[in-house]
Amino acid sequence: MNPFINFELQSTFNMEQNSDYQKDIESIRHMMEKSVKFLSLSGLSGILAGVYALIGAGFAYYIVYLPQTPFDYANQSVKEVTIIIRLLAIALAVLVASIITGYVLASRKANKMGVKVWNTTSKRLVINLLVPLLAGGIFLIFLALYGYFALVAPAFLIFYGLALIQASPNLYDEIRYLGYLEIILGIICAALPGFGLIFWSIGFGVLHIIYGALMFKKYDR
């Protein structure tokens, strides 16, 4: 064969091949991300979880602080059993409402993306979240039992932050920074006992709303 023709053949062959290689690389990236990350989580659920937390904090303020402002040191410390039970009920209601909202919105988004919500990735994500949260939750019960109420809010912020950092590889990478913020907030909160409700509202209310909005803007449209 004429070597010149051979060269020409090979170069058109190469050009077609090249876009193929690029597609290969793209499909690798896509598969790796899709198999690891649970991208169905909607930013909207973050915003709503923040709103629920703020409403919950409002009720808690009504129960614990009134007529003081939450910016005053809480000298009516939370020791009465009825108050504790009511606070617990509020926290549980906020948690359950947030989980249901998150699940409903994630199923809708997953439907739109044509994937299942309950898959290998989301199962892994739930386990990664649950381990630090359960450990933290049990630890909090002991804190409360021994009367260290001032440490309940900071400890939960810290455990929640750790859970987010743990879960971030299976979620959006930015969640890691939300985790760091929650931990920093928890540590400041530990240093300023009596202002737990304020830090709780910032950590679970304000930060969730800001982060949810950022994620919604970046990933949901």
């Binding site: 290969d24 790796m32 690891v36």
Partner: peptide, 13 residues
């Protein structure tokens, strides 16, 4: 490509 994708998933998980 399918084989490449399978390996990609297994390398990432």
């Amino acid at each position: 490509r399918v084989r490449l994708q399978i390996i990609s998933v297994l390398v990432a998980n």
